[in-house]
Amino acid sequence: MLELTVNGNRTQVPEHVKTISDVKQHFHIENQAMIVEHNGEILDKSAHTEQEVADGDKVELVQFVGGG
């Protein structure tokens, strides 16, 4: 198991979760529009499949919501 902090929640993910795309699939949000920040770095969309995650990493998954 791998421990990640995703949107402020410390969470265990299985070993096969190796990239940001895998994290999105793990949470069943791979088809949603989102912006990803990995350890404080905002990622280009194209980098999600390549960017590897490691134990202890911080991942922020954000989206647009209604606001004024």
Partner: peptide
């Protein structure tokens, strides 16, 4: 149109998005 940026609800991913 204005909007805000917020964390996704990863534990309830099926919520509709305003966009």
């Amino acid at each position: 149109l204005t909007f805000s940026v917020r964390r996704m609800n990863i534990f309830e991913p099926s919520q509709p998005n305003f966009l």
